[in-house]
Amino acid sequence: MSTRKKTILKVIILGDSGVGKTSLMQQFINGKFSQQYKATIGADFLPKDLVIDDKQVTMQIWDTAGQERFQSLGVAFYRGSDCCVLVYDVTNTKSFENLQSWKDEFLIQANIKDPDNFPFVVIGNKIDVEENKRLVSSKKAQSLCASMGNLPYFETSAKEAVNVEQAFDVVARNALQQEESLEFSDDYTDAVNIHVDGDSYGSCGC
């Protein structure tokens, strides 16, 4: 009998600082919301086991720091992602305007071979706020997602658990599809390991 490897889906959550990335992840994984989340430094990680159409998968969700300068640390763990979730805050126009640059940044850092077909999911979070505080309309968001390549779009409230499950279901399905398509493609990465030091330097003797 062959021991089948468990399918791992790697999902990265990106977006401006304070849009609710940690809250979305916590709501999806633990089904709870807290006002007590601290700002994320570096990256956090949580796994969740799921069954998608009778298939057992483990979704590994990576939550990231939103401040721009943290992108310079981002290179390593973007790689090998199966889906990227772009989050903005419906009460914060700037976080919406930055979606495109988050997408571009991800494609570069993750070294995606086929950018046009890589699955992204866009989430507009904090729809629980009063109507007059909302600054980005659904229409505007939908048209942006259409122009970015018909990306699936969800409006959620991590606080009140609205639409979070649905959004991550699509994330999981698209990630699985991506993972399966990669299995057959030849994924030859990083052929060269660069030896900057030559051999003369050796260890630093630390």
Binding site: S17, G18, Q35, Q36, Y37, K38, A39
Partner: peptide, 8 residues
């Protein structure tokens, strides 16, 4: 953005 997320 971070003040209230420092030591809740």
């Amino acid at each position: 953005k971070d003040l209230h997320r420092t030591f809740p």
